[in-house]
Design a protein around this nucleic acid. Sequence first.
DNA 1: TCCTACGATGGACAGAGTCCAAGTCAAGAA
DNA 2: TTCTTGACTTGGACTCTGTCCATCGTAGGA
Lengths: 136, 136
Amino acid sequence: MSDLLERLRGRGWRMTSQRRVVAEVLDGEHVHLTADEVHARAAQRLPEISRATVYNTLGELVSLGEVIEVATDGRAKRYDPNAHRPHQHLVCSKCGTIRDVHPAGNPLADLPAEQRYGFTVSEVEVTYRGLCPNCA
Amino acid sequence: MSDLLERLRGRGWRMTSQRRVVAEVLDGEHVHLTADEVHARAAQRLPEISRATVYNTLGELVSLGEVIEVATDGRAKRYDPNAHRPHQHLVCSKCGTIRDVHPAGNPLADLPAEQRYGFTVSEVEVTYRGLCPNCA
DNA sequence: TCCTACGATGGACAGAGTCCAAGTCAAGAA
DNA sequence: TTCTTGACTTGGACTCTGTCCATCGTAGGA
């Protein structure tokens, strides 16, 4: 759990109680929370924490590569702290539940050069959609 | 171009000038517009058209399967009229430009049963990300 | 031509996220 | 330990995207 905090401190992150709480919320059980959910959980430990701070901190964690932003639908982005192990997502079309999955194959290799239109392709995101056992 | 209009009429769509204009905007050059862009283009031909109507019409086109909703980032959804040929998307991380691509392989087959967690998986969405020639 | 149910309108509203000016405080310097 | 300063936090206003609803208009069948 303090792994994440250690790494952040090692990168010269100025440690504040707000940042610590946000990092701890994400570093707990492995879930995919929206910014508002992160704010709600952080506020249980630090009631005065503001939404703006949560957004700022999440943005920094994303740009540091510690957390991945997942935009699975047109709604709120979700934040995935499992950034160090490459993985894809399985999403329930009804309730929005997300699970991490590790498919076989290498989708990046499936895109031939003439299909890249001069883009510098750096990553692939695969989202499997369907109904979870509860919603089916 | 009137292909789309023909199909819609064939399905008993009540044809109004607003719906016609929205369908024509999408049916032109193959682009991926946001709802607001669709509204702006539609308003060039029919200045009184309201945002609500554009949203309604887009929603109907999506549920009729004539248009696909693409949520590539946390921002506005984009509407892809190329719904009849299965394809994936290549997105510029900087400017948001989208291109349709047709990768090889079958990503659905890459997800083994024990990775499905009881979900009924029905579709896969693959998004390649990188920088387009202009932004690189 | 008339009717009527379906569609359009626009304004209010809601949710997610950003911005900013002012206040606070972590952490290095003395 | 205390001081200093620039980075961080705050909260409220604002933007953007999208939805809802009461009312009005009209496409298309009788």
